[in-house]
Protein backbone atom coordinates (compact mmCIF):
# COMPACT_ATOMS: atom_id res chain seq x y z
CA UNK A 1 0.00 0.00 0.00
CA UNK A 2 1.63 3.26 -1.07
CA UNK A 3 -0.59 5.47 1.02
CA UNK A 4 -0.12 4.57 4.67
CA UNK A 5 -2.56 5.34 7.46
CA UNK A 6 -0.88 8.10 9.48
CA UNK A 7 -0.85 7.63 13.24
CA UNK A 8 0.23 10.68 15.23
CA UNK A 9 1.79 9.86 18.60
CA UNK A 10 1.36 12.97 20.77
CA UNK A 11 4.27 13.93 23.03
CA UNK A 12 6.02 10.54 23.19
CA UNK A 13 8.89 12.15 25.11
CA UNK A 14 6.92 13.45 28.09
CA UNK A 15 3.68 11.44 27.94
CA UNK A 16 4.69 7.79 27.78
CA UNK A 17 4.65 6.57 31.33
CA UNK A 18 2.36 3.55 31.43
CA UNK A 19 3.31 1.56 28.37
CA UNK A 20 1.54 4.01 26.06
CA UNK A 21 3.84 2.87 23.30
CA UNK A 22 1.83 -0.38 23.34
CA UNK A 23 -1.26 1.41 22.00
CA UNK A 24 0.65 2.90 19.07
CA UNK A 25 2.37 -0.41 18.31
CA UNK A 26 -0.96 -2.26 18.41
CA UNK A 27 -2.63 0.13 15.95
CA UNK A 28 0.33 -0.02 13.55
CA UNK A 29 0.64 -3.83 13.63
CA UNK A 30 -3.08 -4.48 13.38
CA UNK A 31 -3.36 -2.11 10.42
CA UNK A 32 -0.69 -4.20 8.70
CA UNK A 33 -2.45 -7.45 9.63
CA UNK A 34 -5.66 -6.01 8.17
CA UNK A 35 -3.80 -5.28 4.93
CA UNK A 36 -3.06 -1.56 5.30
CA UNK A 37 0.28 0.20 5.64
CA UNK A 38 0.85 2.30 8.74
CA UNK A 39 3.15 5.19 9.51
CA UNK A 40 3.79 6.45 13.06
CA UNK A 41 4.63 10.15 13.36
CA UNK A 42 5.83 11.42 16.73
CA UNK A 43 4.72 14.97 17.52
CA UNK A 44 6.78 16.54 20.28
CA UNK A 45 6.76 20.03 21.76
CA UNK A 46 7.21 22.59 19.00
CA UNK A 47 6.33 20.15 16.20
CA UNK A 48 3.45 20.76 13.79
CA UNK A 49 0.62 18.32 13.33
CA UNK A 50 1.20 16.63 9.96
CA UNK A 51 -1.39 17.07 7.23
CA UNK A 52 -3.50 14.05 6.45
CA UNK A 53 -3.50 12.70 10.01
CA UNK A 54 -5.74 9.61 10.27
CA UNK A 55 -5.40 8.63 13.93
CA UNK A 56 -4.09 10.37 17.06
CA UNK A 57 -2.85 8.60 20.19
CA UNK A 58 -1.75 10.25 23.44
CA UNK A 59 -0.69 8.86 26.78
CA UNK A 60 -0.06 9.55 30.40
CA UNK A 61 2.75 11.44 32.03
CA UNK A 62 3.99 12.58 35.36
CA UNK A 63 2.71 15.83 36.87
CA UNK A 64 5.96 17.44 35.71
CA UNK A 65 5.49 16.09 32.18
CA UNK A 66 1.94 17.43 32.11
CA UNK A 67 3.24 20.83 33.22
CA UNK A 68 5.70 20.79 30.31
CA UNK A 69 3.23 19.91 27.57
CA UNK A 70 0.29 22.01 28.73
CA UNK A 71 1.44 25.23 26.97
CA UNK A 72 2.37 23.44 23.79
CA UNK A 73 -0.95 21.61 23.77
CA UNK A 74 -2.74 24.97 23.89
CA UNK A 75 -0.92 25.83 20.64
CA UNK A 76 -2.26 22.66 18.98
CA UNK A 77 -5.67 22.97 20.68
CA UNK A 78 -7.64 24.66 17.86
CA UNK A 79 -6.38 22.14 15.28
CA UNK A 80 -7.08 19.17 17.55
CA UNK A 81 -10.57 20.54 18.33
CA UNK A 82 -11.31 20.91 14.63
CA UNK A 83 -10.16 17.36 13.99
CA UNK A 84 -12.26 15.99 16.86
CA UNK A 85 -15.29 17.88 15.45
CA UNK A 86 -14.45 16.36 12.07
CA UNK A 87 -14.65 12.89 13.75
CA UNK A 88 -10.99 11.93 13.43
CA UNK A 89 -10.49 8.84 15.63
CA UNK A 90 -8.32 9.50 18.70
CA UNK A 91 -7.35 7.70 21.88
CA UNK A 92 -6.22 9.78 24.88
CA UNK A 93 -5.11 7.93 28.00
CA UNK A 94 -4.72 9.26 31.54
CA UNK A 95 -2.72 12.54 31.49
CA UNK A 96 -3.72 13.62 27.99
CA UNK A 97 -7.30 12.47 28.66
CA UNK A 98 -7.33 15.02 31.49
CA UNK A 99 -5.71 17.77 29.39
CA UNK A 100 -8.17 17.22 26.53
CA UNK A 101 -10.79 18.37 29.06
CA UNK A 102 -11.46 21.89 30.30
CA UNK A 103 -9.14 21.98 33.28
CA UNK A 104 -7.11 19.96 35.75
CA UNK A 105 -6.84 21.28 39.31
CA UNK A 106 -3.57 19.92 40.78
CA UNK A 107 -2.94 19.07 44.42
CA UNK A 108 -1.32 22.46 45.07
CA UNK A 109 -4.40 24.30 43.74
CA UNK A 110 -2.83 25.27 40.42
CA UNK A 111 -5.17 25.06 37.46
CA UNK A 112 -3.81 23.53 34.28
CA UNK A 113 -6.02 24.69 31.44
CA UNK A 114 -6.86 21.92 29.00
CA UNK A 115 -7.97 22.35 25.41
CA UNK A 116 -11.64 21.64 26.17
CA UNK A 117 -12.15 19.15 23.37
CA UNK A 118 -13.77 16.85 25.91
CA UNK A 119 -16.50 18.21 28.19
CA UNK A 120 -14.82 16.98 31.37
CA UNK A 121 -13.13 18.50 34.44
CA UNK A 122 -10.57 16.91 36.74
CA UNK A 123 -9.69 17.60 40.37
CA UNK A 124 -6.63 16.15 42.02
CA UNK A 125 -7.38 14.02 45.07
CA UNK A 126 -5.00 13.05 47.86
CA UNK A 127 -5.51 9.31 47.36
CA UNK A 128 -4.07 7.69 44.26
CA UNK A 129 -6.34 5.19 42.54
CA UNK A 130 -4.26 2.20 41.49
CA UNK A 131 -5.18 -1.29 40.35
CA UNK A 132 -6.74 -3.64 37.84
CA UNK A 133 -10.01 -2.44 36.29
CA UNK A 134 -12.88 -4.24 34.62
CA UNK A 135 -15.48 -2.09 32.88
CA UNK A 136 -18.23 -2.87 30.41
CA UNK A 137 -19.60 -1.02 27.42
CA UNK A 138 -22.41 -1.66 24.95
CA UNK A 139 -20.08 -1.13 21.99
CA UNK A 140 -16.97 -2.99 23.17
CA UNK A 141 -18.19 -5.51 25.74
CA UNK A 142 -15.91 -6.10 28.70
CA UNK A 143 -12.98 -3.67 28.88
CA UNK A 144 -9.86 -4.83 30.75
CA UNK A 145 -7.24 -2.38 31.98
CA UNK A 146 -5.13 -0.94 34.78
CA UNK A 147 -5.53 2.48 36.37
CA UNK A 148 -3.00 4.67 38.21
CA UNK A 149 -4.15 8.26 38.70
CA UNK A 150 -4.83 10.86 41.38
CA UNK A 151 -7.30 12.93 39.35
CA UNK A 152 -11.06 12.58 39.77
CA UNK A 153 -12.86 13.41 36.55
CA UNK A 154 -16.49 14.49 36.16
CA UNK A 155 -18.28 14.30 32.84
CA UNK A 156 -20.30 17.14 31.33
CA UNK A 157 -23.41 16.71 29.14
CA UNK A 158 -21.51 16.82 25.84
CA UNK A 159 -19.64 13.53 26.41
CA UNK A 160 -20.78 9.98 27.12
CA UNK A 161 -18.82 7.51 29.24
CA UNK A 162 -16.66 4.82 27.62
CA UNK A 163 -18.03 2.26 30.04
CA UNK A 164 -19.30 1.45 33.52
CA UNK A 165 -16.90 0.12 36.13
CA UNK A 166 -17.37 -3.38 37.60
CA UNK A 167 -13.97 -3.59 39.32
CA UNK A 168 -11.89 -0.50 40.18
CA UNK A 169 -12.56 3.25 40.48
CA UNK A 170 -12.68 4.75 36.97
CA UNK A 171 -13.41 8.45 36.45
CA UNK A 172 -14.24 9.43 40.02
CA UNK A 173 -15.44 6.51 42.11
CA UNK A 174 -18.91 7.99 42.65
CA UNK A 175 -20.90 7.77 39.42
CA UNK A 176 -19.48 4.41 38.26
CA UNK A 177 -18.31 5.74 34.90
CA UNK A 178 -15.01 5.19 33.17
CA UNK A 179 -13.62 7.31 30.35
CA UNK A 180 -15.39 9.71 28.02
CA UNK A 181 -16.35 9.70 24.33
CA UNK A 182 -17.02 12.56 21.96
CA UNK A 183 -17.49 11.82 18.27
CA UNK A 184 -14.67 9.34 17.57
CA UNK A 185 -12.45 10.51 20.40
CA UNK A 186 -12.04 8.07 23.29
CA UNK A 187 -10.56 9.31 26.56
CA UNK A 188 -9.80 6.83 29.35
CA UNK A 189 -7.78 6.19 32.51
CA UNK A 190 -7.06 2.63 31.42
CA UNK A 191 -3.67 1.42 30.34
CA UNK A 192 -2.24 -2.07 30.54
CA UNK A 193 -1.65 -1.34 27.63
CA UNK A 194 -5.33 -0.79 26.71
CA UNK A 195 -5.46 -1.69 22.99
CA UNK A 196 -3.59 -5.04 22.87
CA UNK A 197 -5.89 -6.49 25.53
CA UNK A 198 -8.96 -4.79 24.04
CA UNK A 199 -8.71 -5.46 20.30
CA UNK A 200 -12.37 -4.49 19.84
CA UNK A 201 -11.47 -0.87 20.70
CA UNK A 202 -8.34 -1.02 18.52
CA UNK A 203 -10.28 -2.26 15.50
CA UNK A 204 -13.05 0.28 16.12
CA UNK A 205 -10.49 3.11 15.79
CA UNK A 206 -8.84 1.43 12.80
CA UNK A 207 -12.15 0.87 11.04
CA UNK A 208 -13.06 4.56 11.29
CA UNK A 209 -9.60 5.71 10.17
CA UNK A 210 -9.59 3.42 7.15
CA UNK A 211 -13.15 4.30 6.15
CA UNK A 212 -12.43 8.02 6.40
CA UNK A 213 -9.40 7.58 4.20
CA UNK A 214 -10.59 5.06 1.62
CA UNK A 215 -14.41 5.45 1.94
CA UNK A 216 -14.73 1.76 2.76
CA UNK A 217 -13.04 -0.61 5.18
CA UNK A 218 -12.81 -4.37 5.09
CA UNK A 219 -11.08 -5.62 8.21
CA UNK A 220 -9.95 -9.23 8.36
CA UNK A 221 -10.82 -11.65 11.13
CA UNK A 222 -7.67 -11.96 13.22
CA UNK A 223 -6.68 -14.72 15.62
CA UNK A 224 -7.44 -13.26 19.07
CA UNK A 225 -6.60 -16.35 21.13
CA UNK A 226 -3.60 -14.68 22.85
CA UNK A 227 -5.52 -11.58 23.85
CA UNK A 228 -8.48 -13.75 24.92
CA UNK A 229 -6.16 -15.67 27.24
CA UNK A 230 -4.50 -12.47 28.59
CA UNK A 231 -7.98 -11.04 29.27
CA UNK A 232 -9.08 -14.22 31.02
CA UNK A 233 -5.97 -14.19 33.25
CA UNK A 234 -6.30 -10.47 34.04
CA UNK A 235 -9.83 -11.12 35.35
CA UNK A 236 -8.44 -13.59 37.89
CA UNK A 237 -5.73 -11.30 39.29
CA UNK A 238 -6.24 -9.34 42.52
CA UNK A 239 -7.08 -5.64 42.20
Amino acid sequence: MTNPIRIVHLYPREMNIYGDRGNVLTLARRLEWHGYAAQVIPVNRGDRLPTGTDLIVGGGGQDSGQGLVVCDLARLGPDLAAMADDAVPMLMVCGLYQLFGHAFRTGSGTILHGIGVLDIETMSSPRRMIGNVVARSDDFGQIIGYENHSGRTTLGPRVRPLGRVDVGVGNNGTDGTEGARFNNLIGTYLHGSLLPKNPAIADHLIQIAVRRRFDSAQLRTLDESLSDEARRVALTRPR
Binding site: N16, Y18, G131, Y146, N148, H191, G192, R237, P238
Partner: peptide, 9 residues
Protein backbone atom coordinates in the same frame (compact mmCIF):
# COMPACT_ATOMS: atom_id res chain seq x y z
CA UNK B 1 4.74 -4.92 39.43
CA UNK B 2 1.01 -5.58 39.55
CA UNK B 3 0.72 -3.52 36.38
CA UNK B 4 2.24 -5.27 33.35
CA UNK B 5 2.08 -2.19 31.08
CA UNK B 6 5.86 -1.88 31.38
CA UNK B 7 6.35 -4.88 29.06
CA UNK B 8 5.15 -2.63 26.21
CA UNK B 9 8.08 -0.25 26.86
Amino acid sequence: SRDVSWLWD
